[in-house]
C-alpha cells in the first residue's frame, strides 16, 4: 500500500517536476501532496484520468486560513472508487493573489464547493461558470467571514446588520432581468 503511494508521488514528480512542492503522510495513512497553485488543473486532470490512479470522486474542496501564515490554502480531497485510495492535494495561495483555476469542468461537484470557498474566503476561481456568493446574501458587504481577520460577530453593529437585513427586497428576485442566469426570456 505504502509502496504504491510512494511510486505515485514519484510518477507525479516525473510528470510535473517542480510543480510538486512536497508530500507528507498525516495521521499514519493519509497522503498529502502540496502542489503549485498555478498547476492545479493539470495535476488534478492527470490524477483523474491516468490509468491506475483514477481519482474519480472529488469529495471536498475547502480552504484553510492559518492566521500565522499569510494567505489561504485550498484543499482538495480525492477518492478513487476503483482503487480505494484517499488523497489530499493542497495549494497554498499567497495573500496578494487569492486566485486559482477552477476544476468545475472536471467534476460537477466542484461547482458549489468552489462557490462556497469564494463566499467564505474570497478565493477567486478562474474559469468557474457561475462564481457568486452562495451562503451569504448576494449584497453582503462585511467581507469574507472565514478569514482569520474577520471578527466572529461581523464588522457592523447588530443594529446595522438588522437594518441591512431587513432592507433586502425579495420582490427584486421575481423579475427575470435582475437574476444572473435567468436573463433569457423567450418572447415568441
Amino acid at each position: 500500500m505504502t509502496e504504491g503511494k510512494v511510486s505515485m508521488i514519484e510518477a507525479m514528480v516525473d510528470v510535473f517536476g517542480s510543480a510538486i512542492t512536497g508530500s507528507e503522510i498525516q495521521c499514519g495513512d493519509q497522503q498529502v501532496v502540496h502542489v503549485e497553485p498555478s498547476n492545479n488543473l493539470e495535476i488534478l486532470t492527470w490524477l483523474k484520468d491516468t490509468e491506475g490512479y483514477d481519482y474519480d470522486l472529488l469529495l471536498d474542496v475547502t480552504a484553510v486560513d492559518y492566521g500565522s501564515i499569510p494567505g489561504v490554502e485550498v484543499v482538495y480531497q480525492l477518492w478513487s472508487i476503483t482503487n480505494k485510495q484517499l488523497l489530499r492535494i493542497k495549494c497554498a495561495l499567497p495573500e496578494d493573489s487569492l486566485k486559482i483555476r477552477s476544476v468545475a469542468d472536471l467534476w460537477g461537484s466542484a461547482n458549489w464547493l468552489e462557490r462556497e470557498v469564494y463566499d467564505l474566503f474570497g478565493v477567486q476561481f478562474e474559469g468557474h461558470p457561475d462564481l457568486r456568493r452562495i451562503l451569504m446574501p448576494k449584497n453582503y458587504s462585511e467581507g469574507h467571514p472565514l478569514r482569520k481577520d474577520f471578527p466572529l460577530r461581523g464588522r457592523f453593529s447588530r443594529e446595522k446588520q438588522t437594518e441591512l437585513a431587513l432592507k433586502q427586497d425579495y420582490e427584486d428576485y421575481y423579475s427575470p432581468e435582475q437574476l444572473e442566469g435567468f436573463g433569457q426570456r423567450s418572447d415568441d
Binding site: G67, P70, E95, G122, S141, E142, G143, H144, R147, K148, D149, F150, P151, L152, R153, R155, S157, R158, E159
Partner: peptide, 25 residues
C-alpha cells in the same frame, strides 16, 4: 449584551490580529 456589544465590550475584538485586511466591497 449581544446586540450592543460593540459599544463597551471587549468581546467584539474576536479576530486574530496580525493579518491583512480583507477588502470590503
Amino acid at each position: 449584551n449581544s446586540t450592543q456589544q460593540d459599544k463597551f465590550s471587549s468581546l467584539a475584538q474576536t479576530a486574530r490580529p496580525g493579518r491583512f485586511k480583507d477588502v470590503l466591497k
